[in-house]
Simulated scan of single mutants.
Amino acid sequence: GVTDANPLPGDWIGEMWGAGRRFGGCVIDGGRLYWFLCAKGPADGKDSDTRAALTRATAEFPDYVRQAVKDTPVSAIRRDDIRDRPPVTQWGRGRTTLLGDAAHPMTPNLGQGACQAIEDALALTDLITEYGPTSDALRRYERFRQPRANAVVKAAHQIGRIAHWSTPTGTRVRNTLVRLTPASVLVRQLRASWRLPQTTS
């Protein structure tokens, strides 16, 4: 959702994990608040009363979260399903191939969906430039990109599963592990995620 009535600081960006739910977002142009709420639910499900569903889903979050959601017009709220699939090892055959979500759909838990598509495009461009628009170039692209892209698919899926633990014991364990994780580990993971690999012949 997007709301003009932003109860959060002007530079806020973040994500909060609850029991089986997550709330996050950031301040965007003009001080408006973009927010998201992730919760388990039936695929293609529709709530007859969006406002009531959101009130229930945000009950455990701080007052300012509930206020932000309450102040968002229903017309500015969009519901989408999040889907992925286990990684596959064949992206194409002959003179066809796939890239981006068509090759490796992933959940948004690491913010890497578009990033991996851009990396695909760069690798594909490099290899076609070197080998021409040939089947060999496409297979080289697939062999180069699959390990990294598929690892991100798996990691994003796993983060989503952990973030949505909902039992009291599970959430306590998760929250303790997150709290005890050294900042250096997170920095190392971020650097690995954002380092652009070089194609090799």
Score class of each variant (00 low, 15 high):
residue 15 E to A: 13
residue 33 L to S: 01
residue 182 P to S: 12
residue 146 Q to I: 10
residue 136 D to N: 13
residue 104 H to T: 06
residue 31 G to A: 08
residue 184 S to L: 11
residue 79 R to V: 02
residue 149 A to K: 06
residue 94 G to I: 07
residue 143 R to K: 12
residue 174 R to E: 07
residue 134 T to M: 06
residue 149 A to M: 05
residue 63 D to A: 03
residue 108 P to T: 02
residue 6 N to M: 11
residue 4 D to N: 08
residue 85 R to H: 05
residue 82 I to N: 01
residue 39 A to R: 07
residue 180 L to W: 15
residue 173 V to Q: 09
residue 1 G to I: 05
residue 82 I to Y: 02
residue 112 Q to P: 10
residue 20 G to P: 07
residue 84 D to M: 06
residue 149 A to Q: 08
residue 27 V to H: 03
residue 129 T to S: 14
residue 84 D to I: 01
residue 127 L to D: 04
residue 46 K to H: 03
residue 128 I to P: 09
residue 126 D to R: 08
residue 74 V to K: 11
residue 51 R to Q: 04
residue 54 L to Y: 00
residue 162 I to N: 13
residue 81 D to C: 00
residue 3 T to Y: 11
residue 112 Q to S: 02
residue 116 Q to E: 13
residue 112 Q to C: 05
residue 99 L to I: 13
residue 48 S to Y: 11
residue 41 G to M: 03
residue 194 W to M: 09
residue 126 D to H: 13
residue 23 F to R: 00
residue 184 S to D: 14
residue 180 L to P: 03
residue 125 T to R: 04
residue 67 Q to S: 09
residue 47 D to C: 08
residue 132 G to D: 08
residue 30 G to P: 12
residue 194 W to E: 14
residue 182 P to I: 05
residue 30 G to H: 02
residue 91 W to F: 02
residue 188 R to P: 09
residue 39 A to G: 06
residue 54 L to F: 02
residue 39 A to H: 07
residue 59 A to H: 12
residue 51 R to P: 11
residue 27 V to E: 07
residue 193 S to L: 08
residue 134 T to S: 05
residue 22 R to K: 05
residue 124 L to C: 15
residue 18 G to W: 00
residue 84 D to W: 10
residue 122 L to Y: 15
residue 95 R to K: 12
residue 63 D to G: 12
residue 201 S to G: 12
residue 163 A to V: 05
residue 5 A to R: 15
residue 169 T to H: 13
residue 1 G to P: 12
residue 55 T to N: 14
residue 64 Y to W: 09
residue 124 L to H: 02
residue 33 L to E: 02
residue 133 P to Y: 08
residue 17 W to F: 04
residue 27 V to L: 04
residue 178 V to T: 09
residue 55 T to G: 11
residue 78 R to D: 06
residue 5 A to G: 15
residue 168 P to S: 14
residue 8 L to S: 07
residue 136 D to V: 12
residue 175 N to D: 13
residue 58 T to L: 00
residue 105 P to G: 09
residue 21 R to S: 03
residue 99 L to D: 00
residue 22 R to L: 12
residue 122 L to V: 11
residue 108 P to W: 00
residue 177 L to F: 15
residue 118 I to C: 08
residue 144 F to P: 10
residue 98 L to D: 07
residue 118 I to Y: 06
residue 79 R to G: 04
residue 44 D to W: 04
residue 78 R to I: 02
residue 133 P to C: 13
residue 115 C to S: 07
residue 106 M to F: 01
residue 106 M to Y: 04
residue 109 N to K: 03
residue 120 D to H: 10
residue 109 N to V: 00
residue 176 T to D: 15
residue 92 G to S: 04
residue 142 E to K: 01
residue 127 L to I: 06
residue 145 R to W: 01
residue 198 Q to C: 13
residue 158 Q to E: 06
residue 80 D to R: 00
residue 10 G to C: 08
